[in-house]
């Protein structure tokens, strides 16, 4: 059956729940493109024949192949676009540097797209408020309290807070820090919010 591979790629993405990024299916993409090429060539041949010999009986199969071509195209673009959306979501979750295991699943072009997206977003945030800039990837949740209790999950080194105090983020140490300062570190998995 035509278009099977393309559908399989869509399903593969669909199966990965909550925005996880599976490895880029280069092989599947190639197979679909091959199938499209074959369909296209057959169609070309049939169109020529239908034209020169007036064989109108070929038209239904030409139409069918054309529909399959369109469907393949649609599935592939959907596959690629959906992956882009997932990658975009990662930028908001992890910040501008992606963890290695995620990057491992991205194709070279996706990395390029991500780089460009990062740049666009950064220049957008910089240009806010007449060049003062505002990091809108922070403050994701409404603030409940000013300071929160956090536990360090790994050694992170020294960390300076607002008033110039420098604290040492050592593994398993607990601190009482301004919430908005550690939001990013929490998302990166360096700190953990201790809810008592």
């Amino acid at each position: 059956m035509f278009c099977e591979k393309a559908m399989e790629m869509i399903r593969e993405l669909h199966r990965m729940s909550d925005g996880q990024l599976p490895a880029f299916n280069e092989d599947g993409l190639r197979q679909v493109l091959q199938e499209m090429e074959a369909l296209y060539e057959q169609n070309q041949a049939d169109v020529n024949e239908a034209k020169s010999f007036g064989r109108s009986d070929l038209i239904p199969s030409i139409k069918l192949r054309h529909c399959c071509l369109l469907r393949n195209q649609r599935c592939i673009t959907a596959y690629l676009y959906d992956r882009l959306l997932r990658i975009r979501a990662l930028r908001w979750e992890y910040g501008s540097v992606l963890p290695a295991n995620v990057r491992f699943h991205m194709s070279a072009e996706e990395v390029q797209w991500f780089g460009q997206y990062k740049k666009s977003l950064a220049s957008f945030m910089r240009s806010l408020g007449e060049g003062e800039g505002l990091d809108i990837t922070q403050d994701i949740k409404p603030p409940k309290s000013l300071y929160i209790q956090v536990r360090c999950l790994k050694d992170h080194g020294e960390f300076e807070i607002e008033d110039g105090t420098v604290i040492l983020l050592k593994k398993n140490s607990q601190h009482f820090l301004p919430r908005w300062k550690c939001e990013q570190l929490i998302r990166q998995g360096v700190l953990e919010h201790v809810v008592s």
Partner: peptide, 24 residues
């Protein structure tokens, strides 16, 4: 507006480079 334009170009270029230009 600048962001939207860049996003458009970026996404279009990406789709072209990866799949569309290899299609019939």
């Amino acid at each position: 507006f600048a962001f939207a334009k860049e996003y458009y170009t970026n996404t279009e270029t990406y789709l072209k480079a990866v799949a569309l230009k290899r299609m019939p």
